[in-house]
Structure formats: structure tokens, C-alpha cells
Simulated assay, not measured.
Amino acid sequence: MNAHAPSLPQRQSHLDVYLRVLSALMLRDMRSRFGGNYWGYLVQVLWPCVHLGILVGAMTFRGIKSPMGDDPMVFIASGALPALAFQYISREVMKGYMIHKPLTYFPQVKRFDTIVARVLVEIVSSFLGVCLVCIVLLCFGVDPVPADMITAIGGYLTAIALGIGVGTVNVGICSVFPGWVIGYILVTVTLYLTSGVYFMACYMPDEIYYYMKWNPITQIIEWVRLGYDPTIPVQVDYLYLFGWVFGSLTIGLLMERYVVRAQQ
């Protein structure tokens, strides 16, 4: 055997190819936001801080006191962050599938890969947004650390998990009805306005509060706020929320297997 013969290139493993595809999709996701560059991705990460500032400014202007604790920033953040995490992930997973759909004509890119890539990007974005909000609160002299860290983190992770589950269901729906991308915006806006971000749902009349508890986002917000104030009069139905998380994820994966792939 000739020692000077050129060596053959090593064949990449399936895992290496898969990771390269995921990284390429994630980078494309980050550049496909506002403006078509990475600065657009930064705008999305900063949006929770802007959102928090607008809501707190509106409460201060109208002279509304915080119904939980003494600081309106903590009250708004404890409700807006989990609600926005669910809203962004469940919506952006669907949008990512629609944006990257032409790439699935390449044999290396599967439609499920576009879902995984967008989920990873949105999870990172959510935690970056939380970190930035905490930094802003510290700059204003507000302590963002909850009294019960495990409870608050558990509620926020549940919001992310529910967003992933509902996002996969949305992918199955929009693969058949592309107009659902627009229709779901109305759904998320309605859920956001009625879930208790700006008010304490438990202080509503019992007849109204009973129906609000059917909204999983309402209970997730109450779960997070329990981490900040364990004395608020709420009872979270954890079994109900886990049923939503695992049920939506199961339905979404089944739809990806039998509906989305059938469109190929």
C-alpha cells in the first residue's frame, strides 16, 4: 500500500449530519426574524422587557396598585413572562414549519427537524428574555427572586412545555389549513387578555373564576405567582395542567406522523 496515497475523506455519521442540519436551521431561524439579520433576533429577545415597561407604565399612569405584593413590576412580570413564553413558542413553532417548508425538499432536512430547531431557538429566547427582565428589575431596585424558587420555575417550565405541545398541534393543523397561522393569532390574543396577566383571576366572582380555571394559562400564571406569594388564595390543578401538556404533545406528534408526513 502506498504510504503517500491521499487518504479518503471520513464519512460523517448520521448524528453529525443531523446536528449540522439542526444548527443550520437554528441559524436560519435567528436570521429570519425582523430585518433578516441577527439584530432582528435581538429585538425579539428584548421584547419582554419592552412589554413589561409598557404595562407597568400604564398601571403607574392610571394609579393602579399591585394586587400582589408592593411592586407592580413583579406582579406584571410573574404573569406576562409565562403567558408570553407559551404564546411565542406555540406560534413560532408553527411559523418555523411554514418558513422552512421549502427546505424539506432536500433529503437531509425532514419536516420534524424544522419543528425541533424552532423549539430549541424559542427555548433559548425565552430564558434570555427572563434573564434580561431580571437584570432590568435589579437595575430598578426590585428583587426578582421568588420566595419559592422551585414553584416559580416549575410553573414557567410548564408554560414552555405547553407551548411546545400546542405548537406541534398547530403544525399539524396548518399543514392542512395554512390560514390557521393567522387564525391562531386571534386565539392567543384572546387567551392572553383573559388569562389574568393584568389582574388576579382568583379575585374575580366565583362564577367567572370557575370558567377561567379551564384556561390552562390562567392556572400556569397562578402557579408562578404562588412562587412569589404563597399566601394568595389559589389552588392549582397540577393534574389538569400535566394532562394538557402531555395530551397536546401526544396529539401533536401523532399529527406530525400521520398528517404532516402525508402532505409530503
Score class of each variant (00 low, 15 high):
residue 212 M to R: 13
residue 147 A to I: 09
residue 242 F to Y: 13
residue 223 W to I: 07
residue 184 Y to S: 14
residue 120 L to Q: 02
residue 56 V to I: 04
residue 107 P to Y: 10
residue 91 R to V: 04
residue 106 F to T: 00
residue 248 S to F: 10
residue 173 I to E: 01
residue 206 D to I: 05
residue 142 V to T: 14
residue 115 I to K: 01
residue 4 H to N: 15
residue 42 L to I: 10
residue 223 W to N: 01
residue 5 A to T: 12
residue 140 F to H: 14
residue 106 F to L: 08
residue 261 R to F: 11
residue 83 A to V: 03
residue 47 W to D: 10
residue 42 L to P: 07
residue 33 R to P: 03
residue 238 Y to N: 12
residue 259 V to E: 02
residue 59 M to Q: 13
residue 262 A to E: 14
residue 163 G to S: 05
residue 188 T to R: 05
residue 238 Y to F: 07
residue 239 L to H: 08
residue 250 T to D: 05
residue 235 Q to V: 14
residue 167 G to Y: 11
residue 13 S to V: 04
residue 84 L to Y: 15
residue 38 Y to I: 14
residue 242 F to D: 07
residue 25 L to V: 10
residue 132 L to A: 13
residue 44 Q to Y: 12
residue 143 D to W: 09
residue 79 G to T: 03
residue 241 L to K: 06
residue 137 L to Q: 06
residue 152 A to Y: 04
residue 234 V to D: 01
residue 178 P to V: 07
residue 4 H to S: 09
residue 89 I to H: 05
residue 258 Y to D: 04
residue 203 Y to F: 09
residue 194 T to P: 03
residue 114 T to F: 01
residue 126 S to K: 03
residue 68 M to G: 02
residue 168 T to W: 09
residue 99 I to A: 04
residue 119 V to W: 00
residue 18 Y to N: 05
residue 162 L to I: 10
residue 261 R to C: 05
residue 238 Y to E: 11
